[in-house]
Design a binder for these strands. Structure first.
Ligand code: SF4
Ligand code: SF4
Lengths: 162, 162
DNA sequence: ATATCTCGGATAATAAATATCCGGACTTAC
DNA sequence: GTAAGTCCGGATATTTATTATCCGAGATAT
């Protein structure tokens, strides 16, 4: 069980874009450069974020990606689900219906006890991620990132916007 | 993000073994037959459960696997971690230390905000799984499995034990 | 109008994780 | 003592995830 690398990238990208001036955008190549990750694969995840209405893309010269809505209305869960998908980590294979004790499907209560436990764990996991917004992250970054890093980041963004 | 199939199998196996008479054991082949899953692969997961001290193996004729401790002292989390491993689904790649804003490692607080969110979600997930024991599952099964299935299961076990 | 820049999607190659199989070591019952 | 039966660990195959490359459609600044 492992989350895709894209999840980390996605959260970072969205957080960075929260610092972007309104009405500007950053190109996928720049975003990849900033984070030091493979551009092609990041682009794929950016498309997913775009489809999920978390980012919006603007084409042509001076185009790129920017946030589609205010950081306070986007949760970490939104980003995770856009990239990783929404189906639960545990998928029942109905193995109880294969063995010697098998019965017709309608005799089984759904969902079974095991599935209930797994689902409930999945639910609290998602709830926990859903309780934090991107706005929360940016304020945390402002609080505990190294100051010099913030300055360098701001400088880089000025440069990237020409 | 997807849990290994072995997790479902493992939970089922441990639950079934809770019904096994003291001082007997079920062979991995029988367990695979009962659940209708590939024997060789199930065997691998059983080894993991054995290493985790959840099952204990007895070799030679009349050997096989049985529970290593009472069902009430084994949580679903124990089984999941034995099979799936204990490391969190989100592993930080330290991408913030690759970009233009990069600083020497000691300037960064650990863990960062994003990692904290992910860790905390992982923690509640595990806590949720850790709150349910195998004993809880067996009583749930007794409560809502189809009666005919229980009878057939008991019959099968009698036969399997010769 | 047009030349240029960007995303969007499809395709292919590579790497990694997962699922499967097999032969050897060990234990037990007789 | 011995032979049958079982687990154990490593080798193999299959699937999935990641990375890289390409071209077309649409948008925009000039
Ligand atoms: S008992 Fe539950 S977890 Fe197991 S196969 Fe049936 S529905 Fe799935
Ligand atoms: S900011 Fe946090 S999640 Fe991102 S790379 Fe650094 S430690 Fe990992």
């Amino acid at each position: 069980m492992k989350l895709s690398d894209g999840v980390e990238w996605g959260v970072h990208v969205v957080t960075l874009l929260a610092y972007l001036p309104e009405d500007r955008a950053l190109t996928s190549a720049r975003l990849a450069e900033y984070h030091g990750v493979p551009a092609a694969y990041l682009a794929k995840h950016l498309q997913a974020l775009s489809r999920a209405e978390i980012l919006e893309s603007v084409q042509g010269p001076r185009g790129g990606y920017r946030l589609a809505r205010p950081p306070a209305t986007v949760t970490v869960l939104d980003v995770v689900e856009a990239i990783e998908g929404t189906e639960p980590a545990f998928r029942c294979t109905e193995i109880r219906r294969r063995g010697p004790g098998a019965r017709p499907a309608r005799e089984y209560p759904l969902p079974c006890a095991i599935d209930r436990v797994m689902r409930s764990a999945d639910t609290v996991w998602r709830a926990s991620l859903g309780a934090v917004t991107i706005a929360d992250l940016t304020s945390a970054v402002g609080r505990d990132a190294p100051p010099k890093s913030l300055v360098a980041g701001a400088e880089w963004m000025r440069e990237a916007l020409r």
